[in-house]
Design a protein around this nucleic acid. Sequence first.
DNA 1: TGCTGTGAACCGGTTCACAGCG
DNA 2: CGCTGTGAACCGGTTCACAGCA
Lengths: 242, 242
Amino acid sequence: MSADPAVRREIPDATVARLPEYLRSLSRLAEQGVLSVSSEELSAAVGVRSAQLRKDLSHLGSYGVRGVGYEVDTLAFEISRALGLTQDWPVAIVGMGNLGHALASYSGFVTKGFRIVALFDDDPALRGETVAGVAIQPFRELRSRHGADPIAIGVIATPAAAAQTVCDELVEVGVRSILNFAPAVLSVPEDVDVRRVDLSTELQILAFHAQQKALAGLQPVGAAHALDGCVAHAADPEAVAT
Amino acid sequence: MSADPAVRREIPDATVARLPEYLRSLSRLAEQGVLSVSSEELSAAVGVRSAQLRKDLSHLGSYGVRGVGYEVDTLAFEISRALGLTQDWPVAIVGMGNLGHALASYSGFVTKGFRIVALFDDDPALRGETVAGVAIQPFRELRSRHGADPIAIGVIATPAAAAQTVCDELVEVGVRSILNFAPAVLSVPEDVDVRRVDLSTELQILAFHAQQKALAGLQPVGAAHALDGCVAHAADPEAVAT
DNA sequence: TGCTGTGAACCGGTTCACAGCG
DNA sequence: CGCTGTGAACCGGTTCACAGCA
């Protein structure tokens, strides 16, 4: 139970998680030629409360104009800078199955400071293939990259069984940020940051809420029992009609 | 057992989000033939505090044995039931690019109550293709499914531009749970549940933390050693001026 | 006037510490 | 005893309401 003395985070995690959303909306507005937005307008576009938006932005500094709103360009730039998108982030993807291919060819990848510098997969069938201008290499080549672009972010898109090994290797060569799509909990050193994205988890959360709605719809509000038996088809579209 | 009328207690969202994780760990333990776990062991496996785990599980009921721990099978079943995985969830995927293919062939999909009943894509090149035993159809076929399995969960894996239209159609035919992989904010009626998974957002959050670490490393505040040069281009000197 | 920026109240969720029970 | 289950303290984050300024 170390007290972590040096960890002074200026911007709350919850705010950081929303900044990309704000940035996306601002980019769209900029494309449409909009020059200025109020917190009310922008928050509506993103689906949060205006007070939330203002408080979030206040963590970056005072970039609004009272009585008017925010200048779209300025705000977009300040958010980009706060997120670190004004610098270059070399990314490597490990595991070039369907998911890896999808990630590598995802356009949003390139648009904002992220640049794919390496793709790895040990499947011989993929040998020599190039995706988004980058050749797929066997994973052991990771170690022979000494001269090349250092990897800032590693994306794991392998089966769960390989994930920990891949992760260890990435950490070994200095990667300190990992995005994990494999359904596995990775153990890493203290200073490595792992985020996990899991389809299965998301589906299960949706299923939970769907079940709740089905149960609520079947029973008049206030009923608090007899849910054990109802394992019928919660999928009936009419069940929850308003 | 006196047919415990599993009291409908509200399960906090934060707990629901962790249940799939617990379930995965329990499944692995079951495979290994483990019969019983303590909160200490299970919580270590998923990376949460033991008190957290116990409180989470307490929302489902009292399925532990004091002085001993939890029976793996029983607990796994109770979590499955709480999440609604003991019933069948028909899923449809719209957009069969790389991502759609990855999702459709994802094994974790089938394992726990989720069943793909339809795949949609308007690309003529995909006409007639079958993934995981299901044929890809043009999206307009969605409306002619009247007799077929009703869709409980819709997965949107289209480009952002098509997402809202697809979403509207899904809602129209009665889908009330949507998993959105497109980088777009969907507007839906009150009673529709949307979860969004966005690669770009995750990368940006990682970038933020990486930047924080880099900055902390540059300014000796008694923090950890400097980074292993994995971020070549140093941060803008005037960035994040306090 | 109309908006931003923010102290203060509020709320959900986490952690602690121990009571309760096999 | 040992471990679960839980009231109570605590904490981060959200919302409210208004002060402050163009």
